[in-house]
């Protein structure tokens, strides 16, 4: 670990525009610093700036929820309102990391979690995300946990988290404050695709602070988080699916799907979701939307299986969300 300067912010405004890297729970940043993958000269500790409330939100009736950026993952997952109205979020949180990590990790910090690409984690490897312009050793390397959607020749890394996948399906919004004021970015647009600048994970600009994440009122749909991984806990998703689906009178009236573990960001495809509307919940309808979502999917060797796995996991999640007995996903 390199020596660094440390400053503690007392208020959000201390953190906004501050010169240095913000550190909240530190569950990812400290690991990366020990390995010298991240080498900030200065850390700004935001653990004492407040922003740790979960409160009703929304115009008029307040059916939405405003989650302070410093709310810990464990507290968010256990919140009664979240468990009742957005169980998808609670389940996604509990599907990630370990109890100890969730006790430290924060809502804002979790959105900033960096990829688990092993070549990103290896200072001896070529990695455009860690060291722009050096190339991508994952392309012809071991890429089991890499992207099948939205990747580029510069980077095939995935965003590894679970919380943001649920938030994307729930149409949550990130509230960001910078020197120029406050802006609101949908969670689904917060992470970037790698393109030729994979070193930038998100649209957050230097000096900006995530203040909160807001959830719109629950849709009344049935919410499911299905995470497929190489062991049953403490493993990153091979593929995860967040689904919020409403069925009325034998037909789907609304569906929102998000995929994790398949791209540089939680993957949403509202046009594909719309294919479900008006259809009876059955295997054929689920397969059709899965095929639409995965139309442009491409594997890189080790991760080729993720394409059929994503298709099957989508079908399984939709079957569970709609209470449909699907016998086969072949």
């Amino acid at each position: 670990m390199r020596a660094f300067a440390y400053a503690r912010a007392a208020t959000p405004s201390d953190a906004i525009g501050a010169d240095g890297r913000l550190i909240a729970g530190g569950t990812n940043l400290l690991d990366l610093m020990k390995l010298e993958i991240e080498t900030p000269d200065r850390l700004i500790d935001v653990n004492h700036i407040g922003l740790d409330e979960i409160a009703p939100d929304g115009d008029g009736n307040g059916d939405g929820l405003r989650i302070g950026a410093m709310v810990r993952n464990a507290d968010l997952a256990a919140d009664d309102r979240v468990r009742r109205d957005w169980p998808l979020l609670s389940r996604a949180l509990l599907a990630g990391a370990s109890g100890q990590i969730r006790n430290r990790a924060t809502t804002g910090g979790n959105l900033m979690q960096r990829t688990r690409c092993p070549y990103f984690y290896d200072l001896a490897a070529a990695c455009n995300k860690r060291d722009p312009g050096t190339g991508c050793d994952a392309l012809a390397g071991r890429n089991r946990n890499h992207a099948i959607l939205g990747a580029s020749d510069h980077c095939i890394a995935t965003y590894p988290g679970d919380m943001a996948v649920a938030l994307a399906a729930l149409d949550a919004v990130v509230e960001i404050e910078g020197a120029a004021g406050t802006r609101r970015v949908p969670v689904a647009a917060f992470h970037r695709l790698p393109g030729d600048t994979p070193q930038r994970d998100t649209v957050l600009e230097p000096g900006e602070l995530i203040r909160a994440v807001t959830l719109p009122a629950p849709t009344g749909g049935r919410q499911v988080y299905r995470k497929v991984r190489d062991r049953r806990s403490y493993a990153f998703a091979l593929v995860s699916v967040a689904a919020d689906v409403t069925v009325a009178d034998g037909a789907i009236t609304r569906a929102a799907l998000a995929l994790g573990g398949v791209a540089h960001r939680p993957w949403r495809d509202p046009d594909a979701d719309a294919l479900l509307v008006g259809r009876a919940p059955d295997g054929a309808a689920f397969a059709a939307v899965a095929d639409a979502i995965l139309r442009g999917a491409r594997g890189h060797g080790d991760n080729d299986f993720k394409i059929p796995l994503a298709r099957r996991t989508l079908i399984a999640a939709l079957a569970e969300a709609t209470g449909t007995d699907v016998r086969t996903a072949a």
Binding site: P118, Y121, D122, R231, S233, F236
Partner: peptide, 17 residues
Amino acid sequence: HFVNRDMAEYHIPANLD
């Protein structure tokens, strides 16, 4: 080289397994 050289990526069974 040993690619998955940490306890997050080398998957010994967890309690749930």
